[in-house]
Amino acid sequence: MRALTYRTFYRLPGRWRRRIVRTFQPTYTIGAVAVVRDPQLTRILLLRQPPGAGWSLPAGLMDRGETPVQCAARELAEETGIKLPPERMRAANPNAIVHTRGQWVDMVFETEVEPGVELVVDSAEVIEAAWHRLDNLPPLTVSTSQLLAHYAIGPYKDYPEVREA
């Protein structure tokens, strides 16, 4: 029965197969995150966004036709005024953080920037942007704390179960 189902499925036109797969498989939203540190790796750039309950990282959803690294560079520029070419961003390790409960994937990129660079925030999206010492971080959003734990940063860095969630 299973073999017959597969044979039938692969005889269908490609667009029908895609529609069937998209109907029955979970879908994920793809976003890109920029982890921006100073060259000495002692400070990190964080944003306070509405409603302002905690600090987060420059991030956003990919536009159609955009690559994850282009998205990370675009979001960094839109939210902080820091314009970097995508070539200045490198894939973090791990590069993809899959959030199965919320069904989204964060593609994470790292870069270094001198803290003296002028920050120009988009007031529609960002209340404040500031550099923070890694050993004295402000209150972070839960999702930011969980993401940074993958890179041994923040309040959850010593909790391996957070990285596995």
Rank of each mutant, 00 (worst) to 15 (best):
R19M: 10
R19T: 08
V21N: 03
V21R: 13
R22M: 12
Q25D: 10
T27K: 15
I30M: 09
G31R: 08
A32S: 15
V33I: 01
V35N: 04
V35Q: 10
V36W: 07
R37M: 12
R37F: 09
D38H: 07
P39Y: 00
T42W: 04
T42C: 12
R43P: 00
I44K: 10
L46W: 05
L46Q: 07
Q49N: 09
P51N: 10
W55T: 08
L57D: 02
A59H: 05
R64Q: 14
V69I: 12
Q70L: 13
C71F: 09
C71M: 01
A72I: 02
A72Y: 05
E75D: 07
A77P: 00
E78I: 00
T80L: 04
T80S: 01
G81R: 01
G81F: 05
K83I: 10
P86Q: 11
E87R: 11
E87S: 14
R88G: 01
A91F: 04
N93S: 14
N93C: 12
P94T: 02
P94D: 05
N95L: 12
I97N: 05
G102D: 11
G102C: 00
M107G: 00
V108M: 09
V108Y: 04
V108H: 04
F109N: 05
P115W: 03
P115F: 06
G116E: 05
V117R: 10
L119G: 06
D122Y: 10
S123W: 12
S123F: 07
E125F: 14
V126E: 03
V126S: 02
E128M: 05
L134D: 09
D135K: 10
L140G: 09
T141P: 02
S143Q: 10
S143M: 07
S143V: 12
T144Y: 07
S145M: 13
A149M: 06
A149W: 06
A149H: 02
A149K: 06
